[in-house]
Design a protein around this nucleic acid. Sequence first.
DNA 1: AGTAGATACTGCAGAACGCAGCATGTCAAG
DNA 2: CTTGACATGCTGCGTTCTGCAGTATCTACT
Lengths: 211, 211
Amino acid sequence: MPTTRKTAAQDATPYAILGLLSVRPWTTYELAQQVRRSLHWFWPRAERKLYDDPKRLAAEGLAKATEEFTGKRKRTVYSITAKGRRELKAWLGTPSAQPSWENEALVKVFFADGGDLTTLRTNLTEMGDAARARLAELGELAAGEAPFPERRHLNAVTIRLSQELEEATLRWSQWALESTAAWKASDDPGRWDPQSVYTPLVEAWSEGRLT
Amino acid sequence: MPTTRKTAAQDATPYAILGLLSVRPWTTYELAQQVRRSLHWFWPRAERKLYDDPKRLAAEGLAKATEEFTGKRKRTVYSITAKGRRELKAWLGTPSAQPSWENEALVKVFFADGGDLTTLRTNLTEMGDAARARLAELGELAAGEAPFPERRHLNAVTIRLSQELEEATLRWSQWALESTAAWKASDDPGRWDPQSVYTPLVEAWSEGRLT
DNA sequence: AGTAGATACTGCAGAACGCAGCATGTCAAG
DNA sequence: CTTGACATGCTGCGTTCTGCAGTATCTACT
């Protein structure tokens, strides 16, 4: 990773919420549910934040808070303002932060030489299972009713990337399980050749195909 | 994402550091550099944390802090203890938190209907460029001297997943650029059929191939 | 002798998180 | 018609994490 990473000008979370508000008005509770279905896949944030950020958006005039009542229980519905739409549009054109992903199971694979070969292989299996489970969730999403037909194209493009990443993880876990089957121990791969794994990548790099 | 997410018993960061210490003793500064090269790819944490966590590890007897001097400048070298190795090994067998990834550019793609088609396509291009740049970094890592030859197999397996994910992202961005070339606007895909994108995923899901 | 850059951290303010808590509403079973 | 389970709709609070500025020493080069 480069130290010269370009960080985004602003925190993306309020804009992500603004984006959801641009689709339709929501109560925070509905927002939280919708986030679980969509945004959370590629912009995971604690639900707690979804109760604070809309207030700020409202304070800055990017959203409008309307109080409604169900019996005597109050609920706040947030909607986007014209100013909010302009801000959102401007944000779409700003440079983005580098993507990042975290994977605790892979940390365990990386340090697998501190444990047994069986433990390593269990972790690999679990990574594959998790990927399959997430693919199933994506499948369910894709098969379900589209809540916003006018946004299907963007949903499709976005879900597609999640799908590709999970499939890549699944394929990798299968490859890793096959590879490690021949290992003697977690700290001794026997005749298995690590260098050959790198070859295609190193060739692409040294031939300048990646620049 | 499921609400029934299983969270890991403990925070992985101290264990990740413990893992590095199991390879060899480091000063925090060296640790920070090493993390940038390896761990940061799949366990990104602020460098600031690398100055606090080893202290805790030492306080718990999982690591040992040794003070050394370069002239009159002090530096602390951390090394793993026998207890630390046992704890690390035990941790390797515990269930892991779900993986997560965040991608600000994809948020912009997801809400692209709030902006121009050109903006959408710029963001797609930038995502591809970023993936290519990261692949180049991985290539450089893979081509370089292996600092720990006895860990090459684990490095190879781990880097391989990063590579697959970046390649998947790159392929996706190219596909998305081709797809959007025919769109009329960011909120109007014209004749482009979102449903067909889902088809393979939905079929795999409905046939139960993901369970 | 000067200075740019690497090494080696600490302090602090603000952001984010997780979790508990609390109050109301709905719906179904007994 | 009452009880309980679960959904809705939040707020408060303690802890952790992050980013950034600041401090000081060492090394290498001009």
